[in-house]
Design a protein around this nucleic acid. Structure first.
Length: 734
DNA sequence: GCATATGCTGTTTTT
DNA sequence: CAGCATATGC
């Protein structure tokens, strides 16, 4: 029974065998984290600790879940992995909610609202509350509300603790938005995490039943959990206390999504009897790459100390590429890809190019195309976010949940049926007066005071819906979609339009159709429309794994987490780009972790690049070399000409130097002067009144240090107290 | 009701 | 620059 554990190293094996009680595995990059989780699941089943259906494994991406399931299947051979609960937090919780959400007054056919649906509902709420987006931007409100939800702060509590003006506005919007979701019988992504918590709190029996079912709980990427996920995990495991978490605090890069790094940092305080294992043996990267990564992450204060140990030889030093501008940067990357490929025999698929922001991908993409380098951009516009797909899906969603007004509004006049905004306004009034839903208003349009032309249009629409709904009750998803396309002629219209764009959209609809066919073939049972929609709603464009084609991968650093490549280019290493503008020390630490993630993806070689000028919002900007470059041991970084950085005589300070003016012919056209970043005297002192682009006006309470490392403690009128790095904060002294 | 112009705003995005 | 939301004209 222990033979298959021979594939593991000592620490991995100990972690697998520690079956009872809380366990945390700190798994450094490339240390075999997935291996430990999958072997542990196999171990539990093979040794009869639990059967598959008593094990719940939670991940953050569908891709990770799929990979895990596959690997467990392989380990167990006879397929006893059936019944295993492996999935993302969101999909597993959605599944649980389908069973019990009626207890909270929702219908089990609830819609899942994506970020756009949610934004639209927030916009409506703001409209009704007479809150102009000029006073508090929509995105800000959406962020505040989402963060509150991720921290499991419900509207009532939020209102009680709302401090500044923005918060008070947000409290009102949050409250109305929540009511609107309920009216729509809809849950947003955050609700999928917090509705179970409400359910557990109000109906302890439901929780108890789940605790009995899930005797073993495993959580991947624990450093990325937010408060709601943390609470759910705690509640679910409270009875058997078999909670097993795997993560790496150094790879926590989603704090802006509510992830709370303290969950992993404090695990041992939380579960005082927890066993902890540290996996630091790295099987992925050369010694030099790990030395570089270790030297950078050492600069973070808030972390659990651990240094990755390589199982490989030292390998090559890192190469620093210094380019004139982003175009030049891309050209150099293209040249290196060609030359390394030829000299060292690497294939295109061995290369990855990372960037901090999606906007950077364009220049890189252009160049790849021009130089005939096959490439693939990961995580650009999601298939499901395309308009034509969203429209088709809105029909399906509406068939299942006719309170879903977001979907209704999408389809009511698509394809055009002469039901415009004014008509919808009248319908709304009618619905409100009668106290009925918008769709009921449509079916009872003849009772309202509408023009007969409008009544006819509405009747046409509702009979279309009813026909499709009838089909949906007995037919497959594929049948419904086929009928939808035939009755509405949506694909036909696109084909007739006959532009490159419309044909691409037509193609996408065909793709959706073939996905529906696959789904229907695999799920011939009735009522699978809901499952299909759930799969679609919770799918993301990052789920697609690399196929067998041979291409260079282009992606954001965030998207690179969990992947590995022989040769990695980390681009745009400039102050204010990577690290991206960050005002608070904690944000800088997160940027550093992000850089750490980027470096630890590489197996053989790393190229670091920066450009002296770069367009930002259409304006050329001077750039400064990223501080992260100078944090790497300079003995293992060489320039393109082969000089080791440590030996290079710097004519200028590395950190804050402005590129020599005149040194470059190509002064940016119509050059706007760069944001001045010289460590000139900041002029800050206690009591100064300052203005900050994000936090607004505030008073300086304390100033520490000077020059590059200067920090200031500032009390903002509307944003509370913050410690900011003066160098980055771009404060205006008033 | 619909198509086109203008003006504004923005950085990363597992679900 | 580009995508989006609103405003305007037909």
């Amino acid at each position: 029974m222990t033979d298959f554990l021979l594939d593991l190293n000592d620490v991995q094996r100990q972690a697998v065998r520690a079956t009872e009680g809380p366990v945390m595995v700190l798994a450094g990059a490339g240390s075999g984290k997935t291996r430990v989780i999958t072997y542990r699941i196999a171990w539990l089943i093979k040794n009869g600790y639990a059967s598959a259906k008593n094990i719940l494994a939670l991940t953050f991406t569908n891709k990770a879940a799929g990979e895990m399931r596959h690997r467990v299947d392989v380990l167990l051979q006879q397929g006893s992995a059936g019944g295993l609960w492996i999935g993302t937090f969101h999909s597993i919780f959605a599944r649980l909610l389908r069973n019990d959400i009626h207890l909270l007054g929702y219908d089990r056919n609830f819609s899942i609202f994506d970020a756009d649906d949610s934004k639209s509902l927030i916009r409506q709420s703001m409209g009704e509350l007479n809150i102009s987006p000029d006073s508090v931007p929509l995105n800000t409100l959406q962020g505040i509300i989402s963060r509150a939800k991720n921290s499991f702060i419900l509207p009532e509590e939020f209102r009680r603790s709302a401090g500044d003006y923005n918060q008070q506005i947000a409290a009102k919007v949050y409250d109305l938005y929540t009511r609107k979701l309920r009216e729509n019988n809809a849950l947003d992504f955050d609700d999928l995490l917090i509705k179970p918590l409400e359910l557990f709190r109000e109906h302890p029996m439901v929780l108890e039943a789940l605790q009995d079912t899930f005797r073993y709980l495993l959580i991947d990427e624990y450093q990325d959990t937010n408060k709601a996920q943390y609470l759910a995990a705690k509640m679910l495991s409270a009875k058997h206390r078999n909670i097993f978490v795997v993560g790496d605090d150094a790879q926590s890069i989603y704090s802006w999504r509510g992830a709370d790094i303290s969950n992993i940092l404090n695990f041992q305080d939380d579960y005082t009897d927890a066993l902890t294992f540290k996996l630091v043996e790295n099987y992925r990267s050369t010694g030099t790459i790990l030395q570089a990564a270790n030297s950078v992450i050492r600069n973070n204060l808030r972390q659990i100390k651990k240094e990755l140990v390589s199982h490989r030889s030292a390998g090559d030093p890192l190469t620093l590429i210094e380019a004139r501008n982003e175009r030049h940067e891309a050209e150099k990357i293209g040249e290196y890809i060609h030359s390394i490929r030829i000299e060292k025999g690497y294939e295109f698929r061995s290369f990855a190019v990372f960037y901090r922001t999606n906007a950077q991908s364009r220049v890189l993409e252009d160049l790849m195309r021009q130089n005939r380098i096959p490439y693939k951009i990961f995580g650009s516009v999601s298939f499901y976010k395309r308009k034509e797909i969203k429209d088709a899906v809105a029909y399906l969603r509406f068939l299942l949940n006719d309170r879903d007004s977001e979907s209704l509004l999408r389809i009511i006049n698509f394809p055009p049926r002469k039901i415009g905004e004014t008509s919808i306004g009248k319908l709304r009034e009618f619905a409100e007066a009668e106290g009925i839903t918008l769709y009921e208003a449509i079916t009872r349009a003849d009772e309202g005071q509408f023009q007969s032309r409008l009544v006819n249009s509405l009747k046409g629409f509702s009979s279309l819906i009813e026909a499709l709904r009838l089909l949906a009750e007995t037919g497959t998803v594929y049948a419904v979609l086929t009928e939808l396309f035939s009755l509405t002629s949506i694909p036909l219209l696109l084909k007739e339009e006959n532009t490159a764009e419309s044909l691409a959209r037509h193609e996408n609809l065909q793709e959706l159709l073939s996905m529906a066919r696959d789904f229907s073939d695999n799920n011939p049972d009735q009522g699978s429309l809901g499952d299909f929609l759930e799969t679609i709603s919770l799918a993301s464009n990052y789920d697609e794994s690399q196929d067998s084609d041979n291409y260079v991968s282009l992606m954001t650093v965030h998207a690179s987490k969990g992947l590995e490549f022989p040769v990695v280019f980390i681009t745009g290493l400039e102050e204010r780009l990577f690290p991206l503008n960050c005002y608070e020390p904690e944000q800088l630490e997160e940027e550093r972790r992000l850089f750490y993630v980027a470096m630890t993806r590489a197996q053989e070689k790393i190229f670091l690049s920066w450009a002296q000028t770069r367009y930002l919002y259409g304006q050329p900007q001077y750039c400064l070399k990223s501080m992260f470059i100078s944090e790497i041991d300079s003995s293992i970084v060489k320039t393109e000409s082969g000089t080791v950085l440590a030996d290079r005589k710097e004519r200028q300070g590395t950190r804050n130097a402005v590129p020599e003016s005149g040194g470059y012919r190509q002064r940016p056209a119509g050059a706007v002067s760069a944001p001045s970043q010289k460590p000139r005297e900041s002029g800050l002192r206690e009591g100064s009144t300052v203005h900050h682009a994000v936090f607004g006006q505030g008073t300086v309470l304390d100033v520490q240090g000077r020059g590059a490392g200067q920090k200031a403690l500032i009390r903002f009128r509307n944003a509370g107290e913050k410690t900011l790095m003066v160098q980055y904060a771009n404060l205006r002294v008033l």
